[in-house]
Write a protein that binds this DNA or RNA. Structure first.
Lengths: 209, 209
DNA sequence: CGGACTCTTGAGACTAATCAAACGTCGTGG
DNA sequence: CCACGACGTTTGATTAGTCTCAAGAGTCCG
């Protein structure tokens, strides 16, 4: 594999929009954010990546990156060049199948998000966003006993689910009253996933089912 | 390739939700709709497929279908079993790479839809939905000189973009006033793509860029 | 002709956006 | 140690956009 390792500071771009991507990354530690931006400034956060996730699989064959990928905190990444990945895939069918499997998983995820953005109200959108992150951190073994810190500003959460910052604030206030979260400067703490789940039961069922 | 051919009547299920899918399909003629449904009845139309599109690539390796796929009109499909596709991919690296490329394209599409649903208003959502279909029909060589018939009910359009049926109706009314579309029983006719584009310029730029 | 489905329209309620200001928190430099 | 500035959160008042509920009219098919 001979992967290389690199550190990115908060706010540092990992892949620029429209640029020719040449590497595949795996997050060792830190948080990474993928955005699409419109000419008039509207911004959609397409995905929020946590340790263990892969960056740039989408651009492996398409030749140009569609979104801007940024380190959101100090982030440690392993990288492998596209050429090497494709070489490995050509030699070993299992590698090719892993790539295909991963692409399918990503696609499944996108469809779930479509359903959330299309059908959910503000409370559901934010509750599921936090639950989704909680579940992924959990699978990565990063959830301990206490509250789980999610270092995302309300502005970023809003860009992820298509809500304005003040409305995110008010909605988080409701989720706090219900015991699901605590709100901190620069982030949110998930106190009780069950309380979040209760605020978005039907979508949570769909998410897991 | 030895594909088989089959005809599906309007409303006939092609793949059932949660079922084990065994085949990959290619649409020869007709329209196909993929939906996700929540327990409380809310429904998201995840994608609308036209001739030339592939069905079921997402379930090739994941083992279970995540959405309900239905013929929306009389539809003619070619099918190949998953086993055969994977067999071909194992023999010919190009086949494996085509599958991967296609999965990446689908993923890119999903991300565009995310941006549309997260950032667009009703007019933009519907204008882009119609433009997207127009562009895809165009690429498939199915656009002639006159108006382009899109046989989707307003209800389906609403489920695709997360708007209620009455609001879709009113919004289509605005697009009609602007000369973009004509409204027919059971469908819409795209009269002037440029008028639609003008109603959603920033998102259209993003869509094509 | 009847029935099922689709489109249209209206009034009122509600959700979320907008605009704006104040307040907290943190890092920095005097 | 304090003062400052940048950034993030909170709150309020108002407006815009969309939903809801409901009824009526159009279209197609048997």
């Amino acid at each position: 594999m001979t992967p290389e390792t690199g550190i990115f500071s908060p706010g540092a771009p990992i892949v620029e929009e429209g640029q020719q991507p040449t590497k595949l990354y795996r997050i060792v530690s830190g948080w990474v954010i993928c955005r699409n931006t419109l000419l008039d400034g509207r911004t959609q956060v397409v995905s929020i990546l946590v340790p263990g996730d892969t960056i740039g699989a989408k651009g492996l064959l398409t030749g140009s990156a569609s979104d801007l990928v940024e380190a959101h905190q100090a982030t440690c990444l392993q990288s492998i060049s596209h050429a090497r990945v494709l070489g490995l895939a050509a030699q070993d069918f299992n590698v090719a199948m892993w790539l295909l499997w991963y692409a399918n998983q990503e696609h499944l995820r996108s469809d779930k998000w479509l359903t959330l953005l299309g059908q959910g109200n503000a409370i559901e959108k934010i509750a599921i966003t936090l639950l989704d992150i909680y579940w992924r951190l959990s699978r990565a073994g990063l959830v301990g006993d206490g509250a789980v810190r999610v270092p995302l500003t309300q502005s970023i959460i809003g860009e992820h689910v298509g809500l304005t910052l003040p409305h995110v604030c008010r909605t988080l206030g409701i989720l706090r009253e219900r015991g699901g979260v605590d709100i901190r400067y620069g982030g949110v703490e998930i106190v009780d996933p069950n309380a979040l789940r209760a605020s978005a039961a039907d979508l949570a069922d769909f998410w897991e089912g």
